[in-house]
Structures are given as structure tokens and as C-alpha cells.
Simulated assay, not measured.
Amino acid sequence: MKKLFFCLMGLCLSVQAFAQRYSFDHGPYLQELTEDGATFVFTTSAKGVSWVELRAADGTLSRHYALEDGLRDAYTTFNAIRVENLSPATRYEYRLGSKEIVDFQPYKVTFGDSIVSRWYAFSTSDPHAERCSFIALSDMHQQPEKLGRLLSLAGVESADRVFYVGDMMDYYADERMPFESFIDKSVEMFATERPFVLVRGNHETRGDMARSYARYAPNTSGKYYGAYRIGDVMFVVLDCGEDKPDDFWVYAGLTDFDAYRTEQAEWFAELIRSKEYRSARWHVVMNHFPPLSDTDDGAPEGHGVREITAKFLPLYRKAGIDLMISGHMHRYQFLDPEERSDLNFPVIVNSTESVVRADIDGRTMKVCVKGLDGGTIKEFTVSR
């Protein structure tokens, strides 16, 4: 520790002058938790080299680094470390480790402090599980306290997954924004043990840092969209893109979401024909935009929803969907297939003040939507 000395009116004083100690800043939180792997995301206060230590039930310890092309990730503050070859349905303990790098020269690296975190715990997915609970909400727009309230109302402590279905921020222009908007609150409440799944909304495509948003939700496919099988449940996450046409002036000619939605529609068409998809008992789809709109007046803001309706709705009708959850409209709506001829699956459109919880047990899925006041907005059961 360094000290500064100075004299004032003949009296020498000693002042502890010391830069912030090397520490873990944000996280850890889990991503892409599967039956045989998990990704651990966290940041440090200064650049260093970091790792994750795993402890199995028999006490066996292993250390893991982020590795690419023979090089361990180093001289960075942001860490995403993937660990694979784990056992299914197994509990592990983990902790973080890091060593500060104070100077990085071609032939000499100078290290500073070394730190370790406390132990945390998680369990890998059970491929044979018949029970699964999940929570979904959207459109928090940088309101972590509201997020925390809704997570509590939905019983996040007993949920297996949390889905953030878009627009958790207004835009992305500062690397602290995702943490301050929703990640830090998630870590505080559940994300050290159970993952959240990030569904990109149209607001997360905005801002000068939007092109690096994916690093906060790393996955092995490298895509925002994908399919995740947990026991008998197939979750599908789609990436809606922007709500207005690509040539709309505010995008400055820097978007091509029409082609991107076509890419996803082609992928989804292949997915629903796959054995893995067809063999799942339950099919749940998350997309920030609803599949259609009852209030479309042809305005530019409705372009994205119209694209979803044109390119995806015919596929949705063939996909055997049991539940779809979306947001974007900032008002709650339930699209009931028993009351409509244009849908054959239920759709919950989340508001800015509602949260969905679903509990699947064998051939029954119970769904409950709660409002910010704690009241129940909607309850229903789906049977298979």
C-alpha cells in the first residue's frame, strides 16, 4: 500500500493514498446452462487474467480459463468462461479467481494482486426432467427496482429459468448500462445459481455499443436466436429486430433486419421438422414482438410486427406451440386461440408491469400472470 506524506503548518501528515483495490465488479452470473456445461460471466475492476474453479461433490477441484486459439483470455476486465464435459443433473460449487496484470509487455508481464471469490453453487440440467418452472417479463427500460419487485412476485427463488423478453434497456451506449439496468439485480436475486435468457428487443439494437450487446449473454451458437431443450420442454428464442423499416431515417442506413428475419424464419422452418423439436412434449416460444397486431394502422412503427406476421405466423401454426410470450406493446393482452380463428396457440403479451410464471409438471402446464400490485391478471392451464 502506498502512502503520501505532506506538511501543513509544520505538521507532517500521512495519508493513505491508494487506488481502488483489485476486485470483482459485476457478477458472477450463469449463461447457457445445459446438461453438460455452463458459462460464467463476471468483470474485474482492472485488467487481469481470470479463471473459474469447480468443486464436485467428491471434492475434486478443477480450474478453467477462457481459451481461444491457444491463448488464455488475458488483459481484460470482462470475462466469459465456458466449462463443458460436466455431468447431467449434478450439483457443483464454483468460485472465481483472478490475477491483476499491471503491465503487459511483449516479453514481460507484471502481475499485481490475486483475488478469489466466495463459493457459489449450481446444478446442471436434467435431460429426463418432467418438471420445469420459468419466469418471463419484458420492457423494464432500465428500472431495476421494478424488475426486482416483479421477480419477487413471480417466486424467482424457485424458478429454473428467467427469460427477459426484450427492451430491458432504452438503448446501449455505455458498458455499465446492462449491469445497472438488469444484470446486477439478477445477480442479487438469482443469477449466480440459475441463468437468465436474454431475448433481444428493438431497443437493444440502438446505441453506438449495440453491436457488442451479445457479449452479456454468450452462447456457443453465436446467435441471439436459438432453441434450448430442458427435459421435456423445447424453448425457442427469436430475435425480432427493429420495429420500423430498414430505410427509416433514424437508422442511418445501418440496419438490415428484413433479411435477418428471413434468415430466422428459414432456420425456424428447419427446426420444427427436427427430431429434437418433434420429440419434445412442450414447445414455448419467446419473441419480443407479438405474432400479429389487432391495432395495426399501417404506421412505420408496425413494420416489424407485420414482418413477423408474414414470415413466421404460417410456421407458428404448424409448430405445435403450447405458449408464446412477447412484449413490446407496453400493455397486457392475452390472445386466446379459442376466441380467434387466426391463432391455434395462446399468446401472452406482457405489459411494462406484468410478469409470467409457468410451472410444468408432466402433462400439465399452469400459467399465471401477475401485475406489479401483486394481483393475478390471468391464470390458465394447458394439458398435453
Rank of each mutant, 00 (worst) to 15 (best):
residue 1 M to V: 12
residue 2 K to C: 02
residue 4 L to Q: 08
residue 5 F to L: 08
residue 17 A to H: 12
residue 25 D to F: 06
residue 33 L to K: 09
residue 36 D to C: 12
residue 38 A to M: 04
residue 42 F to L: 02
residue 43 T to P: 05
residue 46 A to I: 00
residue 48 G to C: 12
residue 53 E to S: 11
residue 58 D to L: 03
residue 60 T to R: 13
residue 61 L to N: 02
residue 62 S to T: 14
residue 95 R to N: 15
residue 99 K to F: 05
residue 108 K to Q: 12
residue 110 T to S: 13
residue 110 T to W: 08
residue 130 E to W: 08
residue 134 F to K: 00
residue 138 S to L: 09
residue 138 S to F: 10
residue 139 D to T: 01
residue 146 K to G: 03
residue 150 L to M: 11
residue 151 L to N: 06
residue 152 S to E: 15
residue 155 G to P: 04
residue 159 A to L: 13
residue 167 D to H: 01
residue 168 M to A: 00
residue 172 Y to H: 14
residue 176 R to E: 13
residue 176 R to Q: 13
residue 179 F to I: 04
residue 188 E to I: 01
residue 189 M to F: 06
residue 190 F to E: 06
residue 200 R to F: 09
residue 201 G to V: 11
residue 202 N to S: 07
residue 203 H to N: 15
residue 206 R to A: 13
residue 210 A to P: 01
residue 211 R to S: 11
residue 212 S to T: 10
residue 213 Y to H: 07
residue 216 Y to L: 05
residue 218 P to W: 10
residue 220 T to F: 06
residue 225 Y to D: 03
residue 234 M to D: 08
residue 236 V to A: 01
residue 237 V to I: 14
residue 244 K to F: 07
residue 261 R to P: 01
residue 265 A to D: 11
residue 265 A to S: 15
residue 269 A to T: 11
residue 269 A to M: 00
residue 271 L to R: 09
residue 276 E to L: 13
residue 278 R to F: 11
residue 279 S to K: 11
residue 279 S to P: 00
residue 282 W to S: 10
residue 287 N to H: 09
residue 288 H to W: 08
residue 294 D to Q: 00
residue 299 A to V: 06
residue 305 V to T: 15
residue 306 R to V: 11
residue 307 E to L: 09
residue 309 T to W: 06
residue 310 A to W: 08
residue 320 G to R: 01
residue 322 D to E: 14
residue 330 H to S: 13
residue 331 R to P: 02
residue 331 R to N: 12
residue 345 F to C: 06
residue 347 V to E: 12
residue 354 S to V: 04
residue 357 R to I: 12
residue 360 I to D: 14
residue 362 G to H: 06
residue 364 T to G: 05
residue 369 V to T: 07
residue 369 V to W: 04
residue 373 D to K: 08
residue 374 G to A: 08
residue 381 T to Y: 03
residue 381 T to M: 05
residue 382 V to K: 11
